[in-house]
Write a protein that binds this DNA or RNA. Structure first.
Lengths: 209, 209, 209, 209
DNA sequence: AACTAACCGAGACGGTACGTCTCGTCTTATG
DNA sequence: CATAAGACGAGACGTACCGTCTCGGTTAGTT
């Protein structure tokens, strides 16, 4: 992406090496792209400790004020970076609530374990000190729970799931578990563990009388 | 010279007053106490962003090296501060697994909501960038889950809870929910919500056939 | 926004007042000046022991990195401070080598005695532990000796001074005496002593046969 | 020296490794020796920058208070270290003032160049900030000049040197030159240079009429 | 023989300064 | 007027020493 940026301007005069300058009184998409790319790369390579506005500017060959102009805080940049990744967590519809929930939970954990979690971890951490990030995180989490609640709603429609269950709340319970494992770097969850959790919740912990 | 030494301490009690000096080749409990107190106060007042070794040293009227001597990292100090608060989360034993779990989850959330959570939030945030903090957090979380697992073990002993349930894993599921709410500042959980979650897990989400 | 920028500077003069910020991608003369001034004042007030980068930064209301950016070492800053004082040691040209040398030596000692020596003392001291300072001092001393050698060169041109004398070496001998007195705080040299030294060297210590 | 210290106690029980403890209510010569030795070694190896009370204590395996008990300041320790070295600068008596002065100046420079100067440099540097060191240095320098003045006094007695010359002052002039070279690390003075200086002063710089 | 007094090492204490890092703001020069 | 560049004040980081203090142990003289 970042390489493409000068491609359209090659013929216009002599082009000073590889420098990216203003394109006038408007936001420069090449800069935005370079900054987001740099931010993402830094996060994936060095994690949150390596992530600083300074480092992003350096790597993106951008001026710090350019970053501050468009992203008011570290958290805003983090969120933008996160939104770029399509998160690939599915809302399966196999017709079997056990399978659906196992696939959902396993998918979420797997996505995070395979590299997708680093940035989200950073956002959660940032949200503990930055109120703006916190609000964004709240909104994001809520909408995700609602979206994923569809799994249970389908189960309810099929008469497979109790009608008095709040789908979003239950999804929150499952994804909380994934959060916990993400935040404690214990994402190596076996299929058995996932199935045990799903089974416990679906069938109930209590002995059937 | 030797006479002067004890002269200032004749009145046994209230003495510390101004300056706190060494008590010889051994750790000074007064310093440790002052440092932990200062650290706690700073955390409660300004949260994680205000928490720096510099600030703690200043407030505790201690030298920075004194802190570094005893706590190798910011995270170590954070954990020590957290350990000082007796966390008051109970392991209730009412004989009814529903009540026990509700009291446990409600107790944890209540404790965090009423001020006890701020420091733990900070530790989780810190653990996202500091490997040492992460390790400490892992160990802590694990041991807590095992401890609280006793609630379910008692249920199993009573024949109330399925024997194939892993107590620690189930507790982890419940406390994950509390973590989630702590980290998203949504600890205002109603008793109904807690009961719904407990009920869902105890009785199962599935419709009984 | 853009309008606000110049608003505070409408009245051209007296403006600096409180805060001194960047003037763009280039060295800020106001900062440089403030730092050198602060350094000089600290040296004159508290001498070398009071002179620390920390103290200079504090007094100049500058950040430490700003100092380290422009002066790689304490010694470099010291030398810059010394160079600011025009040192007022003359190269007199009375036509009489005795008078010229007396005025030179007396002038040097007098300049140091009347306040100008404190900083140079500090530089010499610093050079004993800092190789960079040492090198700077060597270069400075050498060039001064060569400059002042002109006194003897004129004497040689007049046929008053032996042609086989190395002017710089002789000047070094005289200024060494001043160094010695500076470093041992014995700058209260009487005119008689100066004349005795000059007389000894000019006329020779040996009895004329 | 330091090695000998346990020699007398070998047979008395099992001797805890190599520890040097108190010998009762009196100064322990072994400790003093070990401290001076350590101080000297550090100075010769790392120069003034490496010389700290901390380092000396570490190397001498002594407690810091033991050092502070006997030497009130860094300078005092430095001076003691310097006094241990017999300085080997001669007061030659060849009967020829030229030879005597050349041997004196050459001897002083040579002694310093061959390792003896490092400590004296340190003392001079220290004296620029420590008044106690300064005073000690003044006294030392004065007495040395007076002692070495004997060279010129003998010349005066022989009728070889003008009677109106102050011997100490002249010696100060010569040794100032050595100081200068010591402090600027330019002790590689050739015999020719020494002879030129001596010749200039003995015979006079002025052309004989 | 017991006691005292001073010494010993060790090392903790409250501090200061070090030199490096990042922060978020600012101004320049370039296009 | 947006950009890359980079200087600025601020202040935290972790380290090295400073000079003071207390400790527990050792040993020489004195009782």
């Amino acid at each position: 992406m970042a390489m493409k940026k000068s491609e359209g301007r090659v013929t216009i005069e002599k082009q000073v090496e590889d420098r990216r300058t203003s394109i006038g009184s408007q936001r420069n998409p090449a800069s935005e792209e370079a900054i987001l790319k740099a931010a993402q790369d830094i996060l994936l390579e060095g994690g949150l400790p390596a992530f600083s506005i300074e480092a992003v500017a350096r790597r993106a060959k951008a001026g710090k004020p350019t970053i501050y102009r468009w992203w008011p805080s570290k958290a805003a940049l983090l969120l933008d970076v996160y939104h770029r990744q399509k998160d690939g967590v599915p809302h399966p519809d196999t017709g079997d609530i056990r399978k659906d929930l196992s696939l959902f939970l396993g998918g979420l954990i797997g996505f995070w374990r395979d590299g997708g979690g680093a940035i989200f971890r950073s956002i959660i951490a940032e949200a503990q000190s930055d109120p703006a990030a916190l609000q964004a995180l709240q909104a994001y989490a809520l909408s995700r729970c609602r979206q994923s609640g569809v799994i249970l709603e389908r189960g309810q429609a099929r008469g497979e799931v109790r009608a008095d269950i709040d789908p979003a709340l239950l999804i929150e319970l499952f994804s909380s578990f994934a959060w916990n494992r993400l935040l404690t770097s214990r994402l190596d969850v076996s299929d058995e563990e996932i199935e045990q959790i799903v089974s416990a919740v679906v069938d109930g912990v209590a002995v059937r009388k």
